[in-house]
Simulated scan of single mutants.
Amino acid sequence: MSGLEIERDGAILRLTLSNPERRNAITWPMYDGLSSVEALVAEDRGIRVVVLRGAGGKAFAAGTDIRQFADFTTGEQGVEYERRIAAVLTSLLRVRVPVVGVVQGPAVGAGLALAACCDLVVATPDAVFGAPVARTLGNTLPPLVIARLQQRLGAGRTMALLLTAGLMPSSEAAIAGFVTEVIEREDLDERVEQLLAVICANAPLTLASMKEFDRRILRDGAFVDGEDVLAEVYASRDFQAGVKAFLAHEDIEWEGR
């Protein structure tokens, strides 16, 4: 995928936004590549976790590549753009395995939206988050992104961030719960690998069920029907084997079935 590097590394699918000369600004081919991730993971049951980061270490993603807006002259073009982006973000939210975002430097605009669609976000102390379109482009964010930000940051912090067109440092994002952990750059890769190993060792269907409920709550509110997912998990071989292993004080290797 042009501008998006995709690597299968054992049970890990590694995604790298690679447009470093433009601070990993996201192009249409990169969006198309991100749209393919849901199907890749669905078809390969051996994938246990996805990790998303920016190339070069200077930025996660500095939003959509603004050159792609140069020929926008009508409102309908903007609506179609937001539909396209919403489809990408919705697809990422549907990825059945945990998605871990690794943020160095700015995650702004569409970069913030991608980070918000990750289940866990680790960041370096120099990372910043925001969507300062009110003082830059004069466009806006779609409801899906604002809802996800409210879910991850809280309604008050989200509106303050957007209305002031500010940038939130990783330390504040961690206090808000948006960032899971702030890690010094020299320790980042080692800590990320530790986190991925922990996730890979957990029961895949359990993690998938929690992700699905999180997605449904975002869409429908707290009172969602989840009995189909509950039935799948409790009927699984993993659950039956897990009970036996727990009672026998034995280790277990999860199958995801």
Rank of each mutant, 00 (worst) to 15 (best):
I12F: 04
E82K: 09
A115Y: 00
A131E: 05
F178H: 01
M210T: 04
E5S: 01
V100E: 01
M30N: 02
M210I: 13
L112Q: 11
R45L: 14
L120E: 11
E250L: 15
V233I: 03
A39I: 06
L218V: 10
G109T: 07
A160M: 15
E212T: 07
V103G: 13
I47T: 15
L40M: 12
A235R: 14
A61I: 00
P125W: 03
Q151A: 15
S2I: 04
M168Q: 07
G56M: 10
L89Q: 01
L89W: 01
G78M: 14
V49M: 11
L40R: 05
T164E: 14
R53N: 04
R67Y: 14
S209R: 11
D71G: 00
G130E: 09
Q150A: 06
P29D: 04
L205Q: 12
R157S: 00
D71W: 04
P142I: 10
L188E: 05
A197G: 07
Q151W: 06
E181G: 02
W28M: 11
Q194W: 07
R219W: 09
A107I: 12
P143M: 13
T164W: 10
L163V: 13
L161C: 09
W254P: 05
L149N: 02
V102D: 08
L15M: 08
A59E: 09
I146V: 10
R23D: 12
A155H: 13
G78W: 15
R157E: 13
G130W: 14
V224A: 08
E250T: 07
G130D: 05
P20D: 03
E193F: 02
F239M: 10
P204D: 09
A174V: 01
R135Q: 15
R185W: 04
S170N: 12
F72C: 07
I199T: 03
R148N: 15
T158P: 09
A222Q: 07
F129M: 10
G154R: 09
N24H: 01
N139R: 14
D251S: 15
T73E: 10
A113I: 01
A116L: 11
G221D: 09
T64L: 08
E5T: 05
L205V: 13
A59F: 09
D119Y: 02
A55D: 01
T164K: 12
I6W: 03
R53V: 05
V179F: 02
E80R: 11
L4W: 08
G57L: 09
R185K: 05
P169S: 01
D71R: 12
E227V: 08
G242F: 05
G154C: 14
R53A: 06
V37Q: 04
R53T: 06
N24E: 03
A173W: 00
E43Q: 14
I6A: 03
G78H: 14
A86I: 08
A123Q: 03
T16F: 03
Q194R: 10
G109I: 02
D71T: 09
R14A: 04
D214W: 11
D214A: 13
T64A: 12
V100G: 00
E193R: 08
D119H: 13
D65Y: 06
L218A: 11
D220V: 03
A165H: 05
N24D: 02
R216D: 13
L34R: 09
Q194P: 00
A248G: 04
L195C: 03
E181D: 06
V51H: 02
